[in-house]
Amino acid sequence: MNLDAGEARRRFAAARVARLATVDAAGQPHLVPVTFALQDNAIVTAVDHKPKRSTALRRLANIAANPRVALIADHYDEDWRTLWWARADGLARVIPAEPPATAPEPARTARTAAGPARIVGTVTGEPACAGTVGNASVGESAVWHGAIDRLAAKYHQYQRHRPTGPVILIDVHHWSGWSYSPAP
């Protein structure tokens, strides 16, 4: 039986792991398991300390190329009467990692080919502007911290070792799901 949006969201929120599907610019799909938390009608996940092959994660590059994503959480059991899945479709964006708590490197002056020297940020070389913290705007910094707090509240592993990498924020546009049996 199909789940209504509210029941799909409820089951999804209670799940411990979901699978994040992204697509690169050429249309090649990529699927990875993620820990996550809900934040209003958004889903947050972060690049954490678990070992990875690289810090240049394909999911981040895929989101930059195509922000449309899907996540699915499910329950499987040999008793098929308990089977269900819940899916969230939405648009993702990457919130840059919060810079370390150490003193920031001062901005430097760079000469551009197009003209006079300008002040550039310490990491990306992009123009520095008021209201930024490292690579993130003050608003993004608050979103990043809120996402990490939500993840730490859900997963005890993050209470001891909080993620320090970028956060993926997915604005969910559609909830759907299926269950063998009606909701208990």
Rank of each mutant, 00 (worst) to 15 (best):
A70L: 03
P96C: 05
G177N: 09
D24Y: 01
E105W: 00
V143W: 01
A101E: 11
D149W: 02
W175K: 01
A101S: 07
H161S: 14
G177C: 06
L38A: 08
L83K: 04
D4P: 00
T82C: 06
L151C: 12
V94N: 03
A42L: 08
T122K: 03
H156I: 10
D24Q: 03
T132A: 14
P106M: 02
W80M: 13
H145L: 13
S141V: 10
V167R: 05
P106F: 00
L169V: 11
D79R: 13
P104Q: 11
I148Q: 06
D171N: 11
I168P: 01
E140R: 08
S176E: 09
F36W: 10
E98Y: 12
E98W: 05
C129F: 15
W144N: 08
E105Y: 00
V32A: 11
P29S: 07
I95E: 08
E126G: 03
W80I: 14
A86E: 03
I63N: 00
K154H: 08
A15H: 01
P99A: 04
I170R: 03
A25M: 02
D48F: 07
I170V: 15
V94E: 08
W84D: 00
S141N: 13
A14C: 02
D4S: 06
P67M: 01
Y76R: 04
R160T: 15
I148E: 09
E7Y: 00
G90A: 00
W144G: 02
A107Q: 06
R160D: 15
R93N: 02
R19W: 02
H156N: 10
P163I: 05
I170Y: 05
E140V: 10
V34R: 04
N66A: 13
A97D: 10
P104A: 09
T109L: 10
R58V: 13
C129L: 14
G146Q: 10
A114M: 05
N2W: 03
E98K: 09
C129N: 15
A13E: 15
P100E: 10
